[in-house]
Design a protein around this nucleic acid. Sequence first.
DNA 1: TCGCTCGTTTAAACCGGTTCAAACGCGAGA
DNA 2: TCTCGCGTTTGAACCGGTTTAAACGAGCGA
Lengths: 340, 340
Amino acid sequence: MARRPTIADVAQLAGVSRATVSFVLNDRPGVAAATQERVRAAAGQLGWTPSRSARALSTGRARAVGLVLTREPDLIGTDPFFPAFMAGIESVISESGDGLMLHVTSPRNEMDTYRRLVDDQRVDGVFLTDLRVGDPRPELLRELGLPAVAVGADDGVEGIATVNLDDRPVVAGAVHHLVGLGHRHIAYVAGPAEYLHAQRRLGAWRDALAEAGLPQGPVLPGGFTAEGGALATQALITRGDRPTAIVYANDLSATAGMAVAQEAGLRMPDDLSVVGFDDVPLASWTRPSLTTCRADAASWGRAATRALIETIEHGTTPHVELDPAALMVRDSTGPAPARP
Amino acid sequence: MARRPTIADVAQLAGVSRATVSFVLNDRPGVAAATQERVRAAAGQLGWTPSRSARALSTGRARAVGLVLTREPDLIGTDPFFPAFMAGIESVISESGDGLMLHVTSPRNEMDTYRRLVDDQRVDGVFLTDLRVGDPRPELLRELGLPAVAVGADDGVEGIATVNLDDRPVVAGAVHHLVGLGHRHIAYVAGPAEYLHAQRRLGAWRDALAEAGLPQGPVLPGGFTAEGGALATQALITRGDRPTAIVYANDLSATAGMAVAQEAGLRMPDDLSVVGFDDVPLASWTRPSLTTCRADAASWGRAATRALIETIEHGTTPHVELDPAALMVRDSTGPAPARP
DNA sequence: TCGCTCGTTTAAACCGGTTCAAACGCGAGA
DNA sequence: TCTCGCGTTTGAACCGGTTTAAACGAGCGA
């Protein structure tokens, strides 16, 4: 009696068949207006909500999308992208009452996680983030037939929707900003080479320097981590030809780099200019505040979700290009020091 | 033909009934060893995975847990707790092949989100985080009959499992640390008063001061935000009786506070000592590095998940107490300045 | 009045599992 | 030889929806 009402209860109360109730629920044409009214009233009176599992079973759709967050356990929480990205996803799927299945996994288990996602049929599609060079996932998903949208990939991925934000303009903008301030010797602290987006940012930096007619500065790995940024910075500032500016692949590296430089007695931006990437919440509150690049992760999430839904429902694979990131100029960049 | 195999296919191949296959799948006793073997072989040969939705429909269990992340849209991403917490959840549920449904919502829509979670029967239980004073959610969930575990609540919540970490020892430890350094005038920049955990940290600070025989220092709201921390700090350092140490409710406020203090010409820790809370990844890379309190969010996630599963499966409501947070002493705290 | 549409409604099969009462086969005891 | 008991297996109902082909009934033209 405290049992949830089923479609049969509604049908009986409304004096129609279950099929009719189902038709009304899915507003299918061909049901008389008066009947619709009766069914709706009955459903309302009983407080009936159709059972997800039953619908999933007969329609074959889970009405949920999946996000796999692959990180080494100790790096979880260092990435400012995901919370906002997830908020963007949610804002779109909640319109249709769909859900988000989240899986946090380590790189070792990543492929298994995707396989299980498919086997379990718990999601109708997945987001593919942090694409890597030679990434096996697009192939795997196409093979398994699971709709997917690649986030931050240009449209090179065959048969998979993509949502991309071109980092090049903003990286170029950062370099121009530095060049305009008189910098001629600009270094780069890169993210892990396996990531496509890390590669693209590095390439953009290279191109921007070339375009400005400047020599390629040194490139050191920073691994997107604080420790990596610190080590790279240490190496850079103790070189014979110390750069006057460093562009970092993310804010975490940049902030750690600033700490190391300050420790070494360098003043910023007087002795050294620093540019980050991400615009983490703390970026405006470091000393000096950090000049960095801000991408709108929530709108990535929204766009990616719309593209994914389109793939799921119509089998099309749209390629969406987002508004470029913005350069947030703060106090960590300033005029290049006079040449000694 | 490219159709997924069903239990019927396995049954046919193994030469048994569907019921038998089901028994083997759920390792129910009463199936001859040889038969089990045949069924397993058949399932393996066909690559059969039972359909989640079908199981969900007949067992009434969704095999997933829900996490609702309630934040103002612009504060998403400032909280270091959740990613690690989610990783902890995942590490437990993935053992049993369960899933995590994530919902990011704003405070306005929070109750609706919980209701929908229940109506949809998409989860077997939920985590209740960020409990507030007079929180309506425990009552709602008990009423709706959805198993839940309250995270960071003492066992006052009737009929709901709790997982708690007592902040008091570490806050007391921080105060003792400051007192030992000679500080007598210690201020507090608090989190939003509606949160239970913010209240408890504040209370712990009060008690620790009282225990040390010191007067209550000023308490200002920081709202867990950088801006709030900055404003509060500004107010504190321009007071007549400027405190020599400030304890902040979280690292975000503390870091912004340090920036403001430095801006005002104060040196840390010489003129002012600062203590944060959370130990965000950047805490060791601010200048000076931040003395703060570290709780192990991943182990919260694990403990909370185990408690939730216990509630779901046995109807019991365990109350788990976690290891207290640890004080990470860094460079932002030092001897109190000599009284002018 | 008969036959035909056309709009509306429905019975029944189906999705792919779980579960329970009943049937089955076989060896032991009477 | 017959019965009983036990371990094993199964048929059939069930979970709560969706879907399709067919039935229904009212209106209309011939």
